[in-house]
Design a protein around this nucleic acid. Structure first.
Lengths: 217, 217
DNA sequence: TATTCAGCGATTGTATACAATCGACAAGAG
DNA sequence: CTCTTGTCGATTGTATACAATCGCTGAATA
């Protein structure tokens, strides 16, 4: 009873994770054409599971598909990043509102704990802060417990790319945001939590718009 | 110059549309296991493009994939529909806000025209009103012109299923909503348009929650 | 009779072969 | 010299063959 069905890992899944890693780590150049035969051979699988993986990556907005041409590593412009942020803004806002409805004290403690290492006056390790930030958003989405929203986790992959493009605010700027959001969640104030989360992400959007105003595509 | 690239239709795309039609028209029973060999043969294609189609349908939340078992026509419970509506609420709200930013008089006229046939006192053709409703939401998303949002058109397919489950408000209840949203768009008042759109869809969410309160899963 | 488990047919998972077509380069026309 | 067009290698699109395994059925056991 209560046995969790073991999730069979087919090659499509494994390949998906492998290629995603390659893209996120920039081992594959943005804009690069992904040659199926070559890539399949390098991964030690046939084209069939690779194609399945590429389909999933297309859904994740990490690759682009052009019929009769193939799959290409998505290369984001600032304009496209803004679109992603606009969508993230409302989705993460929703996640926060839902999370507020049934967050537990244990979970709020976890969220606070994520940022505890950065409270002092010591200089902040950027990489460590980035993971904490990711975990923060991921966890709130998880608490929200909306399976549809979870499938749109999509955005989280792109978030990594956004960081690489320098599209993120400094820890100093965001620590207060995070604390305020956690407070609202703790008080089960969904409306405020949603609003704060939206403003938090909107700050990122504004940063992108600044780049755009300066002339970058 | 200005020639639009012809979009090659591979069998995967065609198969995708065919199967989507079968699901939406309930020619395939919800919950049914889709036998790949049989389905491929009936469509006159091999399993390869069918698999591609099924992957796309999974992204659209119309089928569910279980490794080593296969693809199943998604069967929505009221609880799941609520999740979909919660997401639609914020996404369509965003679409409305974006649309307000650069809607043209021609486009507002088109939107108003959609509902013109239903303005009189004559009884309303439910099917015709449903299409108008769909077109209304689709057009606003199109005006919004956010490609990421467009890819999440996902929700629009599920909307058809929602109608079939009886999850829609009467024309009498929604005509005023639509008019108010169009007014806000016309005045380029994105904040109001977003708020109105969210409330509009939230009314649907409340209806689902009523079903849930009455005990349906 | 209820339960387990082996065997088998049905179905998915993966590899591979072949067809379609794209893009690059070179030859020829203007 | 530039532009068009034909040819060919490379790459994607599709079909199909075969391997893995799922779950059902029925016999064996308690």
């Amino acid at each position: 009873m209560g046995l969790k069905r073991i999730d069979h890992k087919d090659l499509g899944q494994l390949t998906y994770h492998q290629v995603k890693e390659l893209i996120v780590r920039k081992a594959l150049r943005p804009g690069a054409h992904i040659r199926q035969d070559e890539m399949a051979q390098q991964l030690g699988v046939s084209r069939t599971p690779l194609l399945k993986a590429l389909n999933l990556l297309e859904r994740d907005l990490l690759v682009e598909f052009i019929p009769r041409r193939g799959y290409f590593v998505k290369q984001y412009t600032y304009a496209e990043m803004r679109e992603v942020f606009q969508v993230r803004e409302v989705l993460e806002g929703l996640a926060a509102r839902l999370a507020a409805a049934h967050i537990t004290p244990h979970e709020t403690a976890y969220l606070r704990g994520l940022f505890a290492p950065f409270q002092g006056t010591a200089p902040i390790d950027a990489a460590a802060y980035e993971s904490a930030d990711q975990a923060f958003h991921r966890q709130i989405a998880a608490i929200g417990a909306n399976t549809v929203l979870a499938k749109l986790e999509v955005m989280r992959n792109v978030q990594v790319l956004a960081y690489q493009m320098g599209l993120h605010l400094s820890p100093e700027q965001t620590l207060a945001d995070h604390a305020a959001i956690i407070d609202a969640l703790e008080q089960r104030d969904g409306v405020t939590a949603e609003q704060l989360m939206r403003e938090h992400i909107h700050a990122g959007t504004r940063m992108i718009e600044q780049h755009l105003a300066e002339g970058q595509p």
